[in-house]
Simulated assay, not measured.
Amino acid sequence: MSLAAFLTPESHSTCRPVGASVLGQRLESPADIADITRRVWQDSMNVLQAPHIYSGVEMALWDLLGKRYEEPVYRLLGYDKAFAKQPYVVVPFAAVPEQTFERMRHIRQAGYRAVKTGWSGFGHGNIASDLSQLAAAREGLGADARLFIDAARIWGCDVVAAKRYCPLFDQFSIEWVEEPFDPTALNAYADFAAHHGRMRLAAGENIHSIQQAQQLLNIAGIGVIQIDCGRVGGIGAAKEIAQYADLRCARYINHTYTSHLALSASLQAYAGLERQDLCEYPMDPTSLSWSICREHLLVGGDGEVTIPNAPGLGITISLDDLQRYVVDLEIRIGRTTLYRTPSIR
């Protein structure tokens, strides 16, 4: 899908391929990235995949520029220094509470002090079952750990159903609940924020523009905005949202569940904001996304993650490992080949 959006022939003036606004453009300064971004939003506004594919392109542009000037991306963004972040890991509920307890106990023993959990049927209305899962998670982690819930849009637009769970969130000290409603259900978010508390409500991973983030903060009234750099338009857009959230005394958090290359890109956007001290942290050492990166942002002895003080994003790709996952692909229209998988070496 992303390759098609990058290459697809022009339909009309606002339905051009993303590549037409990128390839051949000058890349000498952050201002050039801003110019390319404006061109993409103007010329590809009716290509619905454009924000997703351009997010990856934009991150690569920052990485290239940082390597050219031998500066980390956060400095090119205007930050003097990068502040370390406390990681939280994502650990879904298991099938039964006993297994959930063991999962959380293992995470605690591994040194993590913050966890986001949920899924596995949570929120479908069986409050007794959900209470047991929350109790197991809290017991396994310990009373002093930070615990968050991802409701995964389970309540749609039903604020009444969400409010039934507030006593459980209070009982087990759930710091915030993420995406209880559909991403565009602004009125539902506003109602729930007024009831449960602005700083106890998170959303944002599914949005794809700065303006949508501002609506979540201004209209929906949430206090925790969680942004995916790979969906919102890249590092520049994420930085603008992070600074906007910081000015409004809201919490900004990255949404990252893939590689540490993506993690580094996400952290650059709010590296210099000292008050924004929490990050979502992908920890699976057996996955594709882990193996393709030569370096990783490891958790230090102080329990925090430090952003690389290295050119660009500070992460290099292992081409040998990547090669194992390459799949041959060709995109052709008539007799014209638009794309063929290239050699990565």
Score class of each variant (00 low, 15 high):
I235S: 09
F181C: 04
F6K: 11
K116Q: 09
P311D: 13
I225P: 00
Y252R: 07
G19M: 06
H296L: 05
A237N: 14
D228S: 09
T336K: 10
E102R: 15
K85L: 08
T100C: 07
I235Y: 10
R138T: 00
D63G: 14
K239M: 15
C279T: 11
A188Q: 05
G334E: 08
M199R: 11
L313Q: 08
A269W: 08
G223L: 04
E98C: 02
Y112M: 00
S13H: 07
G56P: 01
E175A: 05
D80C: 02
A203E: 12
T100E: 03
Y339S: 14
P72R: 13
N218C: 03
K81L: 09
L278Q: 11
D63H: 12
Q25S: 15
E205T: 11
R335E: 12
G334Y: 02
I210F: 15
S318D: 15
H260K: 06
D63I: 14
E274G: 10
D182Y: 15
A161S: 15
D158Y: 02
D277L: 01
V159N: 03
A20D: 01
A34R: 14
A34G: 03
I107V: 14
A202V: 09
K239R: 15
V73I: 04
R251W: 00
V40E: 04
I227D: 12
M283E: 04
L322N: 14
L64R: 15
A237D: 10
E274Y: 12
V40G: 02
I307R: 07
V224Y: 00
D328I: 03
R332F: 00
A152P: 01
W176E: 03
D170E: 12
D328W: 02
Q25P: 03
G223M: 06
I107S: 01
S132H: 10
V232N: 08
R75V: 10
Q215H: 13
V91R: 04
G121V: 08
V160S: 11
A203I: 12
R26A: 09
I174V: 05
P72S: 14
Q215V: 08
Y339N: 13
Q226P: 01
I149Y: 00
A114G: 03
E139A: 13
G111I: 06
I127E: 05
N218D: 13
G140W: 10
W62T: 13
A135L: 01
A20R: 10
F192D: 12
G312P: 01
D144E: 14
R248W: 09
Y244V: 06
C166R: 10
E178G: 06
D150F: 02
S289R: 05
Q268I: 09
I315K: 10
Y257L: 09
E240C: 03
G19L: 06
R39Q: 14
L319N: 11
F6H: 13
F122N: 11
G312K: 14
S55D: 11
A136T: 10
R248P: 01
E330R: 12
P342V: 08
V326E: 05
F192V: 09
Q86A: 14
C15M: 06
E175W: 06
L338G: 02
